[in-house]
Simulated scan of single mutants.
Amino acid sequence: MSRSYSGNIPKLYIIKLAKWFMLTMPIIVLFYQENGLSMQNVLTLKAFYSVAVVVMEIPSGYFADVWGRKKTLILGSILGCLGFVVYSFSSNFYGFFLAELVLGIGSSFISGADSALLYDSLLQDKKEQTYLKQESRMMSVGNFAEALAGIAGGSLALISLRTPFIVQIFIAFMAVPASMMLMEVERDKTVSKGGFVHILKIVRYSLWENIQLRLNILYSSIFGCATLSLAWFVQPYLKQLNFDVGRIGVIWTLLNLTVGFTALFAHRIESRLGKIGTSLLIVIGLSSGFILSGVMTSQLGIVCLFYFYIIRGIATPILKDYINRITSSDMRATVLSLRNFIIRILFAIIAPFLGWYSDHFSIGEALIFAGSIIFLLGGVTLFFIFKTDRK
């Protein structure tokens, strides 16, 4: 009798909840500023986080392919909990740096492995055609969790801005028992040998030999970096509009609810528009979201933020699905980690500069600049994707 791997799905939801129920997110920039950090310091700190993810991203994906998705997720969950323990006892840039280092390494062990296990679990049960729907639902659950955390985190921040970090330890710990109860999916054992040399072979295949995969990874990475970058501007953007902590938490909640609801319908939108139409919607929607938010630095800019988050809800699960469709199971976690690797590299390069730009000019001008670059990079990459697909 064949085994069913459907039991993995609710456990992956718990891991997603533990990772996304971020009580700290709606107030973290305010917390940094309370401890004496500038916007350049904040985005430099986040660039260091990205470097930590980058260093381990591809090796962690390879560990997931060779060592096992389950063991990799267990390790990532433990480190995710430990990072918030460090945060709770830190009050300066260097303490935050250590916490971000631990969280970055932990995040790298989860990213890629979770999506790969989801896809392979569905593949084993011959339900892989439902991956986009499941990935969209999982993303929605994550965003709903982040939305509710916005309200809870804002309320806890009324006690102190440090309180959400202390409570976050217990939220993050939920992922540890959930990951321990996962069922490992059997894969091709031939990939268990080769070590670093085999990682390089997968990277070379993904970024050099397979042009279709290369372009899809790059396209997905550009917009992954875009959504990550804008997220760090939301709090100072709203603070500039004279919103207090409570109202910022409410808007943060509504933004994430918007992503969650939109992601539920991502597979239907892609089915109706097709790859070409959906890809055009993503490149135009996300870049114009940046530019319009930068132009409208009044309360009308909030509408532009919601517009951006709607497109984000469509883009994230669909772009992952495009990569999964053209990737084999024996290298899926490594390839998805390679995507996250490139996202973090791009973010580590651009984020400190955007932070400096906003400190010396304005947040609005920084957003307009970022949107223009994203449109240029995304548009050129999409042109080559269409050209390759026609061939």
Rank of each mutant, 00 (worst) to 15 (best):
I9N: 08
A18T: 10
M22S: 15
T24F: 11
L30V: 03
F31W: 13
E34D: 06
N35D: 04
N35P: 02
L37V: 02
Q40Y: 15
A47F: 10
F48G: 07
A52S: 12
V53F: 04
V54C: 01
M56N: 06
A64H: 06
G68F: 12
G68S: 02
L79E: 03
G80W: 04
G80H: 02
C81R: 03
L82A: 11
F84D: 05
F84L: 07
V86T: 10
G95P: 05
F96M: 01
L98Y: 07
G104W: 07
I110R: 06
S111W: 09
G112N: 10
L117M: 15
L117Q: 11
L117E: 09
S121R: 11
Q124F: 11
Q124S: 13
Q129K: 15
Y131A: 00
R137V: 11
E146Y: 06
I151S: 05
G153H: 04
S160A: 10
I166K: 08
F170N: 09
F173Q: 02
M174W: 14
V176H: 02
P177A: 02
S179M: 13
M181Q: 10
M183G: 01
D188F: 05
G195P: 01
L200K: 15
I202L: 00
E209H: 09
N210A: 15
I211H: 14
Q212P: 07
I217G: 01
S220Y: 14
S221I: 08
L230N: 03
A231F: 09
A231P: 00
W232F: 15
F233I: 00
L241F: 06
N242P: 00
N242G: 01
G246R: 13
V250I: 14
L255Q: 08
L257K: 04
T258N: 08
T258R: 08
V259M: 10
F261A: 08
R268M: 15
I269F: 15
E270R: 09
E270P: 01
K275P: 11
S279R: 10
S279E: 09
L280V: 06
L281H: 01
I282A: 05
V283Y: 09
S287L: 13
G289F: 03
S293N: 07
V295K: 05
T297H: 12
T297A: 12
Q299W: 13
I302D: 07
V303A: 14
V303G: 06
V303D: 08
L305P: 04
Y307K: 04
F308V: 00
I310A: 05
R312L: 12
R312S: 10
Y322S: 13
Y322A: 11
N324K: 12
I326P: 06
T327R: 00
S329L: 03
R332E: 15
A333W: 02
T334P: 08
T334K: 10
F341W: 09
A348W: 05
F353I: 13
G355I: 07
H360G: 05
H360M: 14
S362Y: 12
I363R: 04
I363L: 11
G364T: 10
A366D: 06
L367W: 10
L367S: 09
S372W: 00
F375Y: 07
V380N: 00
F384S: 08
I385A: 08
K391F: 12
